[in-house]
Design a protein around this nucleic acid. Structure first.
Lengths: 194, 194
DNA sequence: GATAAAACGGAGAGTGTCTCCGCAACGATG
DNA sequence: CATCGTTGCGGAGACACTCTCCGTTTTATC
């Protein structure tokens, strides 16, 4: 009788499993960022000091691993929205967050483009962690609309799409300035028609 | 003596080689567009009815093949610039070309994002065929600047960067409208400060 | 047709992906 | 702490993909 408990009260997850999962994520993030999304997963496992089977049990596919890595980054971005909204004017908060977005994704270069390539369904990955990001830009734009800095018929996601582009292409010596200029153009183009 | 001619007067290239090269390009374009950039190249060779060795002789690396496919598409885009410039007002020509760009690249989805992923050096591929595109947007923007529709301190490449983004994310049911809106925003944001 | 150069094709070595299952490590229990 | 049932580990191995090498075939030229 004691062998099968209620489905609700499960056994506590094993410590080694948690440890390994975390370890994989750290190593994978590093490896992806350094050498691109096509690195050997067996290699990642080896670097993490575990067997290939373990890696594949935790993350059945390459995409799954990619997404897990990606999601943690996205969460940080969403958190920044809160802070900006509290400490800046609406339009400034929007501008700051957009710049942060570009900066952040560009640093992780490999992950963003990999989203698209992998499946063919380009947003498959975005959907998962995408709600967070959507929420952030939505809140920021809404505030800026209310303060009259942005016209109300604007779809916040349109801005997001453009940002992803900047991030993807971001490279070369002056990409930071280019991104900055582009954010200005986007905000200028989003102003109410005077 | 007749065995070695001057370096200038080479033997005419073999017909089968040209035929195979063209055949590979057709098949590869189709395969990439349908199933993504990671398809098996041996598969492409098989579909083209040739040996793997032949494929690899023509295109030593996956990137080389990808670029060759990409370049032909880009050439068509550059050609459109000419036509638009001749038959439309500056601002309309710019708008039309930007929309075409999005449309065109979005259709080939896989190629554009693949550029970035592959090497790490995201612009490596762009450099090759990029001059054409740069020339096109440059000419269009310059005309629009002269006619007073676009402010002069704008870097045309900034627009290009944003466009690539739209193209990458383009998907979902209403991407076409989204792209249209975004082009409007970009143009509005590029107007002279009144 | 004869000849040399060019191109072909596919076998095969090397590498990466992912699964399977015997074994080890763990959490719960008394 | 000893035992038990369960969960997770690891790495061997089957399969797929990449890319090269070289004997054979096709081509242009004379």
């Amino acid at each position: 009788m004691a062998t099968k408990r209620s489905q609700l009260a499960r056994r506590k997850p094993r410590a080694d499993a948690q440890r390994n999962r975390a370890r994989i994520l750290v190593i994978a993030k590093d490896a992806f960022t350094r050498s691109g999304a096509n690195i050997s997963l067996d290699d990642v496992a080896r670097q993490a000091g575990i067997g290939a089977g373990t890696l594949y049990r935790h993350f059945p596919t390459r995409e799954a691993l990619l997404e897990a890595v990606y999601r943690t980054e996205v969460e940080k971005l969403a958190a920044a929205e809160q802070k900006f909204a509290e400490t800046m004017t609406p339009i400034e908060a929007l501008r700051a967050w957009m710049l942060l977005f570009v900066d952040y994704i560009a640093a992780k270069q490999i992950i963003a483009p990999a989203l698209n390539t992998l499946v063919g369904r380009p947003s498959k990955l975005f959907q998962a962690s995408g709600a967070l990001i959507k929420g952030a830009i939505h809140a920021l734009v809404e505030r800026a609309v209310k303060s009259g800095d942005i016209r109300p018929d604007l779809d916040p996601l349109d801005l997001l799409r453009a940002l992803v582009g900047v991030s993807n292409v971001a490279s070369g010596p002056d990409w930071a300035q280019s991104a900055r200029r582009l954010v200005q153009i986007l905000i200028a183009g989003s102003r109410p028609i005077s």
